[in-house]
């Protein structure tokens, strides 16, 4: 098996032709996505170049504090992204930042303690990125689902409040449904691992020349990790954000109607 996975600069430039396929489709179908595609591609290239050099530096320095700082930056960015998906839920950034920190610390902490990964920057930082990224997606779904449900069920919620129900009682199954929405995509995608797609971690290891049997062990750990991370993030985001839909007088306040 060849372990040469270095892409030459020429190959990289030639593969840029793939972007033109996407642009051609957009142009031909009048999707008006050309500008957005070019900006997205340019952004991703610049971001990846910066991250590539940054990671190389952090791995070389191999300092605990720098590793933790890098993890904190990942969580900060993920929290900002989750906030954008909250459609105006007050305090969404704080909820996301704390929730992502909890889910990352617990999940990555267990992986380090069980010696699945070592406390080394080249292992810790990519794993933190995976955990925070998936938690962020789950939180975004939870936020969006809460907005949707509170909008759809505002009359029912108000009638429960009018009968003297506490906000928790008036919320009914809304919080639970939102948690389910946050966790479901992970469960769905995990179910088809190996049948439909070879997941990222495993693909990367196999391409780097690792024995597929070793690669699947890591992938199985990733499954456990993502289930835990999205579970913790969804529960935290749902219960904390639900409170933001009520004011101190137990009145329903919809974020987009303020």
């Amino acid at each position: 098996m060849s372990t040469n996975i270095d892409v030459s600069n020429l190959s990289l430039v030639l593969s840029f032709g793939l972007v033109f396929i996407s642009l051609a489709i957009s142009y031909q179908q009048k999707l008006n996505l050309e500008k957005e595609t070019i900006i997205s591609v340019a952004r991703s290239i610049i971001q990846l170049i910066i991250v590539g050099f940054l990671l190389k530096f952090v791995f070389q320095v191999d300092n605990v504090w720098l590793t933790l700082l890098m993890s904190a930056v990942i969580i900060f960015n993920a929290a900002r992204n989750a906030k954008y998906r909250s459609q105006g839920i007050p305090g969404a950034f704080q909820i996301a930042a704390v929730g992502l920190t909890i889910s990352t610390v617990i999940t990555v902490g267990i992986l380090v303690m069980t010696k699945v990964i070592e406390f080394e920057p080249y292992q810790l930082i990519p794993v933190t990125g995976m955990v925070a990224g998936n938690s962020m997606t789950a939180m975004g779904l939870v936020f969006r689902n809460l907005n949707q449900q509170f909008n759809d069920q505002q009359t029912i919620v108000q009638e429960r409040l009018a009968l003297g129900a506490t906000p928790k009682l008036a919320t009914g199954s809304i919080a639970k449904e939102a948690i389910r929405t946050g966790m479901q995509p992970t469960i769905d995608s995990v179910r088809t691992y190996g049948l439909v797609s070879l997941p990222g971690m495993m693909t990367g290891l196999i391409m780097a020349g690792v024995d597929p049997i070793h690669a699947i062990k890591y992938q199985i750990v990733v499954v456990f990790m993502l289930l835990s991370a999205t579970g913790i993030a969804s529960v935290y985001a749902s219960y904390l954000a639900t409170r933001k839909f009520y004011n101190q007088h137990w009145q329903l306040v919809l974020p987009n109607q303020k």
């Binding site: 409040l161 009018a162 009968l163 003297g164 129900a165 506490t166 007088h249 137990w250």
Partner: peptide, 9 residues
């Protein structure tokens, strides 16, 4: 709050 809303329904 709950007590008030039970009385003023």
């Amino acid at each position: 709050i709950s007590d008030y809303r039970q009385q003023v329904s």
